[in-house]
Each structure stands twice: as C-alpha cells, then as structure tokens.
Nucleic acid binder design. Structure first.
Lengths: 259, 259
DNA sequence: AAACTCTAATCTGGTCCAACAAATAAACAA
DNA sequence: TTGTTTATTTGTTGGACCAGATTAGAGTTT
C-alpha cells in the first residue's frame, strides 16, 4: 500500500518526464542567475529553445511553478518572479477537500506545540524594549475595522512572538502557515467577535514574559489557544463564505493599493 | 515587508482564465461525484469535451491539480485520485523557504523546541504496543554498517517519535527537514561515533514515555539533543546536505544533488 | 471444446507543432 | 500631454504522433 512510511527518493530514477525536468531547469535558472522578485524570466519560446522542449512542455512546467506562487506570467512581458506563495498555499489548502476537521486541527495542534513551548526562548532572548514593542502590536488589535483586519492584527501579535524566540526556522514555518492560520482566526472572530478579550489575553501573556514567568506563560498561552479554537466550527463548510477559495492560480491579481 | 493589500475577496474572479475555470470545474466534479482516493477521473479528451476546452487547457489544469497532490495520472488508466498531499506540501515548503538562509543552529533549535515539547502528546496518544515498536526501531541503530546508515537509523527513531505525537503537520515538517537533520547527524557521528550511547539515550527516553513521566522525558530529550549538538561544528557551510530545491511534482520525487 | 500463447488493435497520457486570439508595453502621431 | 498604432508575448485551440499498457482475437495446443 502507499504509506507515508517510506522515504522520498525511493526509485530515484534519473528519467523523469520532460515537464519535471523543465521545472527543475527553470528553478535552477532562477537560482543560478540569482533572480529575485520583479525580474522576468525568458519568454516561453526562448525557454523552449534553451531547454530543447516544446512550448507546451514549457507551459506545463511554468504552470507548476506558478502554482507554487513563484511566478506571475503577464502578456507582453513574460513570467515575472513573484512573491505570492501565501496565496498559493491558501489555494493549496483550499483544494484539499477533507480540509474540514483534521487538517485544521492538525495545524492548530501544531501551533499549540510551538507557541506554548517557545516561552523559555522568549524569556531568554527578548529584551524589555522588545516586549514593549509587543505591547504596541497588541494595541493595534482593537483598531481593526473588520473581521479580516482583526485576524491580521491577531496574527501579527503571534508572529511577533515567534520572532522574539530568535529562531529563523520557526519564523519561516509560521510564515508558511500564515494563510491558514489567519483563515482560522477569521472564521473564529466572525463567529464570536471578542477583540477586547483577545487583547487582554495577549496582555496577560506579555505580562508573564515581563515577569520571566515561564509557568504562567505556558498556562496563559495554552488557555488562549484553546479558547480561540473553541469557536471554530468542526465543519468549516460555511467558512467558504470567507475568502478561502480564490482563483486556483493567482491569476495575475492586480494589487491595487486602493480599490 | 508584506504588502498589506489583501486582494483575496474582492472581485471573486468572475472572469478568470480558461485554465483556472477548468481547475475549478474539475475540483467541483470530484466533489460532486464524491470521488475518493483510487477513483479515476475521466480522460483528458473526455474532460475537454465535457468542459468545452481544448486538451492542452485541460492538461494545464490537471497539472495544477497534480501539483496539489490530488491526482496521479497514469497512462492507459487516467488521472487517479491520489493522496499525495504530504509530498505536495513539502514541495510548497521547499518552494517558499530558503533553507540555505537558516543556519544549522536554527534547525537544531527548532528540533529542540518541537521534540522536547511533544512529550505530553506522546504520553497521551501512544499505546504500549507503539512504544514497543519504538524499542524495535531503536534496536536497529547498532546494526548500521557505516556512519550514514547510523544517521538514517537515528533519524528513524526521532521520526517515529514525531509520528506518535499524532499531528500530521508535525510529521510533514520533520520530513521536510530530514535531509538537513540527517546531514547534521552524519557529521556528528563521524566526529564522535557513539552508537551505544545514542541507543542508551533513546532507551531512557522510551522508558520515560512508558512511565508516562513527562518531566523525565523533557529532561532526557533535552539532554540528548544537547549532547548530539555538542559535537557538530558551527560552520557546516562546506558540508551542505541535499539541496532543498523542490521536486517538481510528486512523480518520483528525487533529491539528487545537482552539479 | 477448452485452455494457452502470441499478435495486433486500441486506448491512454506525454510531447510536439502550427496557428490564431487577446492583452499590453512601447513607439509613434496629434 | 494624449490618443493611436504596432509589435511582442501569453492564452487557447485543434491537431498529430509516440511509447507503453491493456485488450481482443486469431491461432495453436491439450
């Protein structure tokens, strides 16, 4: 049976499909040329000539890279290196159909494991000034105009905590999960909007950190996360009302600054 | 900084590209027919006729769904509904994160945070039989013929622990880091090969779990990780592990070092 | 007649090709 | 400056062929 027990790279056959090879080649191209966001890839025809593949093959490879949120093709310009992984990840999770209970519980459980246990690191690393900045971030929560912005502020606070732990892998992982976490927050807040309570809970957490009280931190953070999760329904089906299922790809969304 | 413009919910994508529409249609098809893993989608030609799109468009849409890990096309059969999100999520991981920018200390610190704090979850979730299986995995360590295999066995033990915690996100994250972790282990063991000590330390950890003693687990695991880290030099720049370039799709995921 | 073997037709995804449509950056004209 | 044209690029289509696996069937053997 197909079980996850096996390691990846079992057959490691050198012969993969032309599209897969092209994906690798394009990613290598991006890496070797040290391209960054905003740069444009060669045109599809040029890539085809470069790698000896037809334009259809190139397009399928670009479609994969595009699904990762790494590029955003524009007519007349080419594929622009993009930074839309958050949208891509959101689409990824939205495409999973059994996303309802298990996956969200997994992610919340993952948060719980991480956030509760970083107290020690924050206590060791964070300065008084940094804790003050935390207070400032927390204060913004109640200025949110709508549910989505409130979720954004809430997430900002937890992300600020992550950063204080002083571990980049931690921050990257949390960043990776940010679309889903914010979605969970949005759903929870739209069901039960209690910005004041959230702010107070965050404040208590900050106070525990100021007192360098790791026991209090663990308790308060654990309680805070449990409380938030309580109001997330088991079936997130109606959650589709929230902006969880945008266009499958990024579809060159124009980021109008004011619209 | 992240651009604050959240464009997710605004236009709801009334007029997206044909490929994007097709992706949605195929996903809807899967949902409406209540298809599950193992079922086969209609052929590309049939889908094209069904949705009024050319086969190339269908193929690009399928390529996206494939990148999500939802299907696994097989010649002469069709696109089989698959359950390869674990591989897919790793590719998304790799596409977003630049491991090279995180130091090995970051990754070890990340391990420490996770592995030390999952004791509670293992104590709650793991049965006696599962702890016995853990013993079995641990016993294989001293059968390793070379350093690399020893690192593999060592990693297997820690991965088995992760799985006992009962959180898939955790397992996927650990799986994603496996090349780097195993590399660290390999370096450490080649500097100071102490398979017996490792096995004994693991045994103590298992004993703590059997006794449902969370304090002992935290202490022993923490000591174990610190001990292993002590013999890893700080700069592992020259000895990079496998590159973290994502395998394009799930088909035959291979982590061959380039060059 | 029934069972087995080998072969050819058939169906699938994988790849390629040529063309046209739509969008738009850039050059150009008013 | 403003509107228009042009050229280039992606988006989409319809077709073609290939490699490989499955299937149907003819032929052979029991």
């Amino acid at each position: 049976m197909e079980q996850a027990g096996h390691d990846l790279a079992e057959d490691a056959g050198v012969s993969s499909s032309a599209v897969d090879q092209t994906v690798r080649q394009i990613l290598d191209l991006i890496r070797n040329r040290a391209m960054s966001v905003g740069d444009v890839l060669p045109t599809e025809r040029e890539l085809g000539e470069l790698f000896g593949a037809s334009r259809n093959t190139i397009r399928e490879a670009l479609r994969t890279i595009r699904t990762y949120g790494l590029i955003d093709p524009k007519p007349r310009v080419g594929a622009v290196l993009a930074d839309r992984q958050n949208v891509a990840i959101q689409n990824f999770f939205a495409a999973q159909m059994d996303i309802s209970k298990t996956s969200f519980n997994d992610i919340q459980g993952f948060r719980r494991i991480i956030e509760v246990s970083i107290g020690d690191h924050i206590i060791l690393n964070a300065s008084v000034a940094e804790l003050g900045a935390l207070d400032e971030v927390n204060g913004l929560i109640e200025t949110a105009k709508d549910v989505q912005e409130a979720a954004q502020r809430d997430f900002d606070f937890h992300m600020a905590l992550m950063k204080l732990a002083g571990n980049r892998m931690l921050v990257q992982t949390y960043q990776f999960l940010s679309p889903v976490i914010q979605h969970i927050m949005t759903v929870g807040k739209s069901i039960r909007p209690v910005l004041g309570e959230t702010r107070r809970a965050h404040g208590e957490i900050i106070a525990a950190l100021r007192a360098r009280d790791r026991i209090a931190y663990s308790y308060l953070m654990s309680r805070h996360l449990d409380f938030g999760l309580r109001f997330v329904p088991d079936d997130l089906e109606n959650a589709r009302a929230a902006p969880m299922v945008p266009s499958p790809d990024m579809s060159s969304s124009k980021d109008l600054p004011h619209a």
